[in-house]
């Protein structure tokens, strides 16, 4: 509050009495001091600014927060990993228990594919030596799974190996003798694996004995889809799906999954809509191996 007394003001030669009574001038009290708590508007603006910085900053920088969180809380995050399996143990089919058998089957499928490819190579390039073993000359870096997200649209694993162990983006990751995904981000001691069922991952594959390159995209919830394949190609449920070789990352095809469903595309009946299921049981996966080619 400021009180102003009676004042006389001069203007030219005239003395004017402007006011002969007390005038109370109300000055609004500042709600906050200069160094006090910020206003709601300022608070909102600052928080929003931080959020937008996180949003548009390079992911390689912002991912460090996520990796640090996962590393610090690794133990509590892994506590409940097997509880859903225990709860659903009675609902799982009997053959799911034979994980070792499934692993052997995957290995057999890989060997069969390798043998078939060998025969073709021998026939086509008789006499020429070719590198065909998918993992020949590769170093397999074993890693434990810290957390996994396989139920939503983003299917990812966090593993306890990173750039310090020679890991880099786009390297293939194997589980139970099959390819399960690729490395998408690495920190010093942590890596993030995008499973091939993740909506953002597109993998070049081949189905069964078809000599046609196809693109497989994840659709979340442990399944992926192959489209744009003409129905003239014969595809059957149960056919194996192989990840195609990529120079520098994988020297030969490796099994990824099996065809679960094959039906005509709703939009274009002349094309297949193929649903692929992984051959690896992601829910029970506790360790993986990262393929480091030509270490």
């Amino acid at each position: 509050m400021v009180a102003a007394g009676t004042r006389q003001l001069s203007f030219g030669n005239c003395w004017l009495v402007m006011a002969r009574k007390h005038i109370r001038v109300w000055v609004p009290k500042r709600r906050i001091s200069r160094f006090g708590a910020p206003s709601r508007r300022m608070l909102f603006t600052w928080f929003m600014l931080v959020g937008l910085i996180f949003l548009f900053a390079p992911q390689s920088l912002t991912n460090r927060f996520q990796f640090t969180f996962a590393r610090i809380f690794r133990w509590p995050l892994s506590i409940g990993r097997n509880i859903p399996l225990l709860v659903r143990a009675d609902k799982l089919p009997e053959n799911a228990a034979g994980r070792r058998e499934a692993r052997y089957q995957n290995y057999i499928a890989y060997l069969e594919e390798q043998l078939r490819q060998k025969q073709q190579t021998v026939e086509a390039l008789s006499g020429l030596r070719s590198r065909f073993h998918a993992l020949e000359g590769a170093k397999l870096v074993p890693a434990d799974v810290i957390t996994r997200s396989i139920t939503g649209l983003n299917n990812e694993l966090l593993i306890n190996r990173g750039s310090d162990d020679g890991l880099a983006a786009d390297m293939f990751v194997m589980g139970d003798n099959s390819v399960i995904g690729t490395i998408c981000d690495v920190a010093a001691r942590t890596g993030r694996v995008k499973l091939f069922t993740d909506v953002s991952l597109v993998t070049q594959v081949r189905v069964g004995k078809l000599q046609v390159d196809m693109l497989m995209q994840g659709v979340g919830n442990s399944s992926a889809r192959i489209r744009l394949i003409p129905v003239k190609h014969k595809v059957n449920p149960g056919d194996f799906v192989f990840a195609k070789a990529r120079p520098g990352f994988l020297d030969g095809p490796m099994i990824v999954g099996t065809v679960e469903q094959c039906r005509r595309d709703d939009d274009n009946p002349s094309l297949w809509d193929i649903t692929v299921r992984p051959v690896c049981d992601m829910e029970r996966l506790s360790s993986v191996a990262v393929v480091v080619m030509n270490p």
């Binding site: 928080f47 929003m48 931080v50 959020g51 937008l52 910085i53 996180f54 949003l55 548009f56 900053a57 992911q59 912002t62 991912n63 927060f65 996520q66 983003n154 990812e156």
Partner: peptide, 8 residues
């Protein structure tokens, strides 16, 4: 999956 969208 990425930092920022949920905060905003």
């Amino acid at each position: 999956s990425v930092m920022g969208p949920r905060m905003v």
